[in-house]
Design a protein around this nucleic acid. Structure first.
Length: 1063
RNA sequence: GGGCGUAUAGCUCAGUCGGUUAGAGCGCAUCCCUGAUAAGGAUGAGGCCCCAGGUUCAAGUCCUGGUACGCCCA
């Protein structure tokens, strides 16, 4: 019977009530307001001042276009770990940053202004154009800022670094000068897709838009061998070379072969040609036989040959065979003509051999004027004259049209040229070993990126093509005089010194910086800045020092925060920011800038495709957060699926998170405040009076055990950057807490805190909610802080984000109890299944349940009581106590255990176990722990661990069994049981009447009843006190009331009840 | 073309050291419980664990080779 009164809303409360209904987005706005008014973020930084630093570097988002949900992903991870580490006692500075420069910004501004191409921009004016770029960046920063605040990403945006700020640019200049001084900044050629009509290079994105299918000549050409074993007049041999761009033969520089491919000599009786073995028939057709001469590509290195055209001069040695892995035997001849000015692969290979870059084609796409045969001709139209000339000189074997896809300018449809343009490089290949060493010391999450995608990229490192012929970027700080003396400038002050005037307030962007010229320190000639700006990846890779403006200013701040402990971005940054961060710092300081890097998979739309406006599947982050709340979106990002993998986000997934995780957690807290707060039933002061944990009921001890396991596990998971693991632990615990602990403890909460059991329940639930709130706080900072505000002890910090991570009490972790409770819950499930099968509802008490399960014998009384209560049975007995004839035994082999001992004989032993007499075997195992069986005539002893025993009553019972565990219900319903069941039905009936009568849960009632059914009447008399207690009746009267009352009649039970709120 | 990753129920995903009855949630159907109730529980239907080989007493799990998809790079 219920001892204490129900919660009384009018009495003094020890806890504010968390209403059972909550509007999560609205609550989040309140929390945001409190954070801002009470300066919680600022205070969390102040209060950790002086603690060890844990340094996080913000990878600056490109403030180009509006933020999408995919931006939320990385930003959640950037928030979770700093919050976690702060709670762990570190000082975690969080400086925001914005990536401001780059082509995407330029393209967006071009569109806005209706410009198209570099000519338009220059006519419009670079100064004005760049002003628009700056304005566009600032506009988009606003949208990012709003989203960042709304999602609860704590980052200092007031002191954000911006890659376009003069101090930032100066730091970048300093880094470039340092690299120059080390001899690693060089000018060289770079192959770019280039439109000769527009006079501009195209980005990859532009390139992708312009592929067209065209027919080009494809020619097979003889290159006579002039050195090596196949040279000489007695058996003249030619390399057979295939190309679809005859015009590039003018500048032929080398021939590439694959080192591991075999090349053979074929003859038609008249001449001898060298071709890759797998391509002989494809390239030559009928009528050719092999001479038997055969060479590995690697043997042919540096054999010389006669080049096809002598139209341009070569000042350095060239025209020999080189080795290249990219050569294929898919088509052609396996011998690939090399012209480094017109192909990226050619350029890489030829540069490795120190070959010259000869380029006879001018920027307008025509050959140089003075050349024979092709002078002044547009490159593409030179093909026919060249092919004719080859034919005339007997060098052409075959010419056939070849259809393929070739890139064209998306603006003017001119065929593009892959064209060598002078470009600035950083010789990262020179520090490749250092980069590999730095990578070896870096922790990657997930781990496979380290040696996989990223390691592969480092091992195949190529020099960093740094310069861009664009406008809105960090200008390359290189000045050159007519004598080609280069001067690299590391700061505005230095530039001012060279120019002889104060330039400290100069905007270090184009065109202003282009206007500064000075006398060359070497020769006194006029030095002008080179026209290029730099790759934006260098900007962002410089952020560890450039965000402070170091070393020109704030150098102490930089040194105190280098290297960083943690960076995090999506997987596409492997060769982007992750690389530039490691490369820039290794170039400048000889050390990578980060220790741990988290690498996230992409966020996809619900249909599994990328979100794009075009497909109409975009989720706008602010809308999502206003609908489901930022916490739901955050939880999705950190705990749904695996963050390392691509994931689909949609409303359904978020709704489920709200229901299963956030509301379940919140409702538990709400339940607690309702009962603890009522009339001051329980307050923090009572914690001291609560029984010591080991003296509490087993249910409480179990919860504390699970709690401390979870606290420890979540801390360890987050230390490993494993948010999904932390999420799984928390989800399970929230479910355990709400749907087992609270449900099984409800009566103790109703009873109040005045008994040791009651106080123990309140204390246990409080401790669980307190710790749970703390460990969930980094993941879902809003709802936890809201709950914290209601629950916190008076002496605790006002925000959960100012609190410390809880210490896991490992001494309270009781593995055996966990297992026993798991068994208890499995048995309850089986019992419920048995009830469903039998059709006897749970409200009907039953006399007895039989349980067959290993471990049941050791199950403590308190846990058996849980089973009995939950299943509504009066008695719980072991199946083994029942007369053996009524029980059927089955024995199954435990392969895991048997395999260890019997290895190859396992199947035989298993078979023998199955064949043995189950009942006899069970009896042996039960009495001695061992059983004898025969395997192929030999006696074998089997231990109890090596078999799985299950037992079932033969008949007359409602049985459910799984994995060797059995629950059997005795279905005999005696008249006493029937009346007890009726009493429960009547309680239910009256409770319904209370509810429909609009009574408060704590209202007392007067109750009248009249029963036609004599059984019901007897049940009412017999169980009157119980019923009265359950429904809060202060009086129970047989008969009808005077005056108004709320009435209900049940045909099923032949009863009418009337109730009225008691005076 | 190369590198890396992924593939398990209609959907989203777990699956530890290889152990013979592969799980959860959602959705669907049927039912139960209910003063935490916009919740909870039970039952059911639904599986070529992508395919083919191999290793092993034993493979969703380890190895090899394919196929499909994704990302990055050419």
């Amino acid at each position: 019977m219920r001892g204490s009164p129900m919660p009384d809303h009018s009495a003094a409360r020890s806890f504010p009530v968390l209403p059972s209904q909550i509007d999560l987005p609205a609550t989040e706005h309140e929390v945001l307001k409190r954070w801002s008014e009470r300066k919680i973020f600022e205070r969390s930084l102040e209060q950790s001042q002086g603690n060890p630093n844990w340094v996080f570097y913000e990878g600056p988002p490109t403030a180009n276009g509006q933020p999408g949900v995919h931006h939320v992903e990385a930003r959640v991870f950037k928030d979770v770990f700093p919050r976690f580490k702060t709670m762990r006692g570190y000082h975690v500075d969080r400086k925001a940053g914005w990536d401001c420069h780059g082509l995407p910004v330029e393209v967006a501004v071009e569109k806005e202004l209706g410009l198209s191409g570099k000519k338009d921009i220059e006519e419009f004016g670079v100064a004005e154009f760049n002003a628009h770029c700056r304005e566009s960046v600032l506009r988009n920063v606003g949208a990012f800022t709003a989203m960042t605040e709304r999602m609860g990403y704590w980052v200092n945006m007031d002191e954000a670094y911006r890659t376009m700020d003069p101090e930032y640019v100066e730091s970048v200049w300093w880094a470039l000068k340092t690299i120059w001084d080390k001899g690693l900044l060089v000018r060289d050629y770079r192959i770019s897709p280039y439109c000769p009509r527009c006079g501009t290079t195209l980005s990859d994105h532009e390139l992708a838009q312009g592929y067209e299918t065209v027919t080009d000549p494809s020619v097979y050409v003889r290159f006579p061998v002039t050195s090596g074993p196949l040279a000489g007049p007695e058996r003249p041999t030619s390399l057979l070379v295939w190309t679809t761009t005859p015009w590039t033969l003018v500048s032929n520089t080398a021939v590439a072969v694959h080192p591991d491919v075999a090349y053979v000599v074929a003859t038609d009786g008249a001449e001898r040609l060298l071709v890759a073995e797998p391509l002989v028939s494809a390239a030559l057709g009928e009528g050719w036989t092999l001479t038997g001469e055969r060479f590995e590509g690697s043997e042919m290195e540096r054999w010389t040959y006669q080049r096809p055209f002598e139209l341009v001069a070569f000042d350095e040695p060239a025209h020999f065979i080189v080795l290249a892995d990219y050569v294929t035997v898919e088509d052609g001849t396996g011998l690939v003509h090399q012209s480094p000015a017109f192909g990226a692969d050619d350029m890489t290979v030829c540069r490795a051999y120190g070959l010259p870059v000869v380029n006879p084609v001018r920027a307008d796409g025509t050959f140089e004027g003075g050349l024979d045969l092709v002078g002044g001709t547009f490159f593409k139209t030179a093909d026919s004259a060249l092919v004719e000339d080859l034919r005339a000189r007997g060098l052409l074997l075959r010419n056939q049209p070849y259809e393929h896809s070739y890139p064209h300018c998306w603006r003017c449809h001119t065929p593009l040229l892959y064209y060598a343009l002078p470009s600035w490089y950083i010789k990262t290949t020179a520090i490749k070993d250092e980069l590999l060493e730095q990578n070896a010391r870096t922790n990657w999450f997930p781990e496979n990126v380290k040696e996989g995608r990223y390691g592969e990229w480092l091992r195949n490192n190529i020099d960093w093509a740094l310069s861009r012929s664009r406008y809105w970027g960090t200008p390359l700080p290189v000045w050159v005089c007519p004598e080609e003396h280069y001067t690299v400038v590391g700061s505005l002050q230095e530039l001012g010194g060279l120019a002889g005037r104060d330039l400290s307030t100069l905007d270090p962007h184009r065109p202003h910086v282009d206007d500064v010229a000075f006398d060359c320190p070497h020769c006194g000639g006029r030095a002008e800045r080179v026209p290029e700006v730099i790759d934006v990846w260098f900007d962002s890779g410089a952020m560890p020092f450039a965000q402070w403006g170091a070393p020109h200013r704030n150098n102490e701040a930089f040194e105190a925060t280098f290297p960083g402990q943690y960076i995090c971005e999506a997987i596409d940054q492997t060769r982007g920011w992750f690389y530039s961060m490691m490369a820039v710092s290794t170039l400048v300081f000889g050390h990578s800038s980060y220790e741990n890097v988290v690498c996230l998979g992409h966020i996809l739309a619900e249909d599994g495709r990328k979100m794009s406006k075009h497909l109409g599947n975009v989720l706008e982050p602010m809308d999502v957060m206003e609908r489901h709340g930022a916490d739901a979106l955050r939880w999705f990002m950190v705990a749904s699926g695996s963050p390392w993998m691509p994931r689909r986000v949609g409303h359904e997934a978020l709704e489920e998170i709200v229901r299963k995780v956030l509301l379940t957690y919140y409702n538990t807290a709400s339940f607690f405040t309702l009962y603890a707060g009522a009339g001051g039933a329980w307050s923090h002061g009572r914690l001291a009076e609560a029984p010591a944990p080991q003296d509490r009921p087993l249910l409480d001890r179990w919860l504390l055990s699970e709690l401390n396991r979870v606290v420890k596990g979540v801390g360890e998971a987050l230390d490993r950057f494993d948010t999904a693991g932390a999420g799984r632990l928390l989800t399970t615990f929230v479910d355990d807490l709400s749907n087992w602990y609270v449900r099984r403890s409800r009566r103790r909460f109703w009873a109040g805190a005045d008994t040791p059991e009651g106080n123990s329940a309140f204390a246990t639930l409080f401790e669980a909610l307190e710790s749970l709130t703390l460990v969930m706080a980094p993941l879902v900072p809003f709802i936890t802080d809201h709950v914290w505000a209601a629950l916190r002890r008076p002496e605790a910090p006002e925000s959960v984000h100012l609190a410390h991570w809880p210490q896991a009490r490992e001494d309270l972790v009781d593995t055996e109890l966990s297992e026993q409770m798991a068994l208890t819950r499995r048995l309850v499930e089986l019992g419920r299944a048995a009830r469903v099968d039998s059709g006897v509802r749970t409200r009907q008490p039953l006399s007895r349940v039989l349980v067959g399960a290993a471990g049941f014998a050791r199950l403590p009384e308190q846990l058996r009581d849980q089973i009995a209560e939950e299943l509504n049975v009066q008695e719980l007995d072991p199946l083994s106590a029942v007369d053996g004839d009524l029980v059927e035994h089955t024995v199954k082999p435990n392969f895991r255990a048997l395999g260890k001992r019997f290895a190859k004989r396992t199947p035989l032993v298993a078979e023998a176990i199955g064949a043995a007499d189950a009942r006899a075997l069970v009896e042996q195992v039960r009495s001695t722990g061992w059983a004898h069986i025969e395997v192929e005539g030999e006696p074998v002893e089997i231990s109890s661990d090596e078999v799985l025993i299950s037992e079932q009553p033969r008949e007359g019972w409602a049985v459910a069994a799984e994995s060797g565990e059995t629950v059997a219900l005795d279905l005999e319903i005696t008249p006493e049981l029937q009346r007890a069941g009726l009493a429960r039905e009547l309680v239910r009936l009256i409770q319904d009447a209370r509810k429909s009568g609009g009574l408060e849960i704590s209202d007392r009632i007067d109750l009248w009843w009249s029963a036609e059914d004599p059984v019901t009447a007897r049940a009412l008399h017999e169980h009157e006190r119980t019923i009265a207690g359950e429904v809060l009746a202060v009086s129970v009267t047989e008969g009808a009331p005077q005056g108004d009352a709320h009435s209900t009649t049940s045909e099923d039970f032949g009863v009418t009840v009337h109730l009225r709120k008691a005076a």
